[in-house]
Amino acid sequence: MTSAAPTSTAAPEVRAVSSLEEASQVLAELGPDGAALAGGTWIMRRPLRSEPWHRVYVPVAGLPGLRELDVRPTSSQAQLGAGLTHTELVAELADGTSVPAALAGLAAAARLSAFPQVRNVATLGGNIAAARVGFRQADLVPALLAAGARLQLGYPDGRADRPVADFLGEAGRPAGEILAGVAVPTPPDRFAGFGRLTVRGAGEYAVVNVAVSVDVDPDGTVRSARVAVGALEPVPRLIPEAAAVLVGRPLDGTSAREAGSAAAAAVDARDDRLAPGWYRRAVLPALLERACAQATSTTGPAWTATDEGEPR
C-alpha cells in the first residue's frame, strides 16, 4: 500500500509487529521499500507479474483490531476488520436472518470469489488494497462501493475514515497508511446484491462483477441506490448513471436491466486476455438484474422479473 514503485531485488524480509500503530510506524519509515502483507495471495504473485519485491513486508492481518467484527442487526453500521478472510466473512455474513440485508451483497461477493484455497487466506483489506494496484476483478470492492462503506485507515499519528471510492480513486497513498477496517452502514430499509460472471462454473476471476444496494420506501419505491462494477475498467467504481435509473420507482427486472444498460453505456470496458470488452458490456443488464434479484430475494420487496428471463 505504498505510492512509489519498489526497487529491491534481494530476497524480501518480513518484519513482525505487534500493533497497528507499530505497523504504521514501520511502514512510514520504510516508505516505498515496505508494504503491508495480509493473506499474500496477490503479493506472492509479484514475480509472475514481473514486479520486483518490496524490501520489507509487514504482516498486518492478525493485528489486534484488524479482526474485529460486529454485524449485529441492531447496530446502524457493521464493523468489519480488514484482516478477516473471505471465508470468515462468509461464515459471519451468510446467515441472512440475523445479519442486516445491507450486507447481503458483500456476503455473496465473499462467497463467490476465487476458490476455497484463496478465500481461506485472502482478506478484506488485501482485496481492497490489491484493487488499487491492478486487481480490477477484486470481488469485495464493488460490494463495498455499492454498500456505501467507509474505510478506516490507520496512520503513524492517528486514524481517519474515507469512502472506499476515494481510497481507490486517489493517485497515491501516504506511506504508513494501513487499512484497519471497514464500516458498512446497515439501515433497515437497505437491500444489497451482487452478481458475478465467470466463463467456467467458478474458480476464476470474474469477467464482470456488479453490486447494487438500494434504500426502499415502505411503498416499494427506491429512494436511493448505488451500483458498482468491477473487472471492466482498471479500478472498480460506482456508476451513478446506473443508480439514477433505479431511483424513484420500484425495483424490478425492468428497472434493473435499464440500469444495466445505463451502466454499459457509462463504462469503458476494455478487451483483455480474459474477455472481450463488448461482452463485458453486453452482459451488464442481465448481471445487474441478477444482483437486484438477490437484493430483494429474502427481505426486500417482491421481485418481478423481466420478460427476458427469470433471474438465475
Binding site: V199, R200, G201, A202, G203, E204, Y205, R273, L274
Partner: peptide
C-alpha cells in the same frame, strides 16, 4: 487463468 481448464 486465461487458459481455462474445466473445473469440477
Amino acid at each position: 487463468e486465461s487458459y481455462r481448464l474445466p473445473t469440477a
